[in-house]
Simulated assay, not measured.
Amino acid sequence: MFAHLIRFIRDQYRTKDFIPLHAPVFNGQERNYVLETIDSTFVSSVGAFVDRFENEMAAYTGSPRAVATVNGTAALHAALLLAGVKRGELVITQSLTFIATCNAINYCGAEPVFIDVDRHTLGLSPSALDAWLQDNARMDSEGTCRTKDDDKIIRACLPMHTFGHPVALDDLLGVCTRWNLVLVEDAAESLGSFYKGRHTGTFGQLGTLSFNGNKIITTGGGGMILANEELGKRAKHLTTTAKKPHPYEFVHDEVGFNYRLPNLNAALGCAQLEQLEGFIAAKRSLAARYAEELQGSDLQFFHEPHDCRSNYWLNAVICESGEQRDALIKTTNDQGVMTRPIWKLMNHLPIYAHCRKGDLSNAEWLEVRVVNLPSSVLPEFLQ
């Protein structure tokens, strides 16, 4: 049934062997930089490559400050704390997301509220957010957003840029401003993605990135907080065990976190970042080929939203039905071409089933139809 698509994918990757969903590429200075780190003996959280990686990431994204962390979830946890999220408060997010988005909220002692996504972005819907707030929230005399039924504080809004495709940030910012919500962007998947010429993760008060092994660039494990100078300074302090600078004494002025990115990982990240634009060009070329190949078929290729440049981290198709999705996934994987469904909705997981939610019609529709296709950089771009 999907023989033509499988043949097309194998032609792109020029192999009869197993094709993964997304594999890292080490085609630059990775080995040299890592060996340099080993030779320096500064392999842990102190070293020149950490500062370099932060500075280069800030320059690339246009963020005033970038703070490296041990992984994207740690970055998101710290960002939410810096945004003022406290125990017992609510944070609005999308149900169609990777679980780290919700776990980071949980780490703060807060509770997620699940709002629907837009089908053209796969991300949090501004109109669905506004509708839920109109029905369920009010502003108190101090300008704090609270629930009508039990007076809980709704502190922040946490959208996720799914598969690297930016959400509708202008409209989302407008809703957050009207309701006095802090916007924190989960940009884990969208390094190199731009909304109206501006990098994702720089629209909210804070944003976060991930450099897990399956991301567009990797440090093995790693993350980054994007923030202004003031919050960036606080982020650095909070994620380095809240230790006050001193030549030899250990003085910590608050409960901090050991979320520092080791120099060894940062060295890998610096080499990867040097190749990022090449990776994006390769992935956008692959996306264009998928779109052309699938034109007129019963699999709808997912295109980047209007006025955006997506990194096309993971290519996606929307099937006509859940039955077609299951058949596509089984057939491709049985023949050594890895595909996967989108995540289960967070409110469908037992650990988050009790959480508040709005109407999730779009998310439920997408949950049973979206499939990711192999998205690694093509061999021809590595020569």
Rank of each mutant, 00 (worst) to 15 (best):
L238T: 00
G269A: 04
L276M: 11
V251S: 08
P262D: 13
I280R: 08
C270I: 13
G220Q: 03
G269S: 09
A266I: 03
A271I: 05
Y259V: 01
N258E: 15
I280N: 07
A227F: 13
T239D: 00
L231G: 03
T208W: 06
L226I: 03
Q275N: 15
R284N: 15
Q275Y: 12
A282P: 02
A288T: 01
Q272C: 10
E229C: 12
N212Y: 14
R284K: 13
L226M: 08
A281P: 04
K236Y: 06
G220I: 06
A235L: 11
T241Y: 07
I216G: 00
A282I: 12
G207F: 08
K283V: 12
G220L: 04
S210E: 05
T219E: 07
G278P: 02
G278K: 08
A267C: 05
G222E: 03
L231S: 03
L209I: 04
L268I: 03
G221M: 07
E277W: 11
L261Y: 06
G269R: 04
G213C: 09
L276Q: 09
E230F: 06
G232S: 07
Y259W: 13
D253C: 05
S285W: 05
L286D: 11
A287C: 10
G278A: 09
K243G: 05
V251E: 14
K243S: 14
R234D: 12
G269N: 02
Q275S: 12
L209N: 02
A235C: 07
I280L: 15
T218R: 05
K236Q: 12
L264T: 02
E230Q: 12
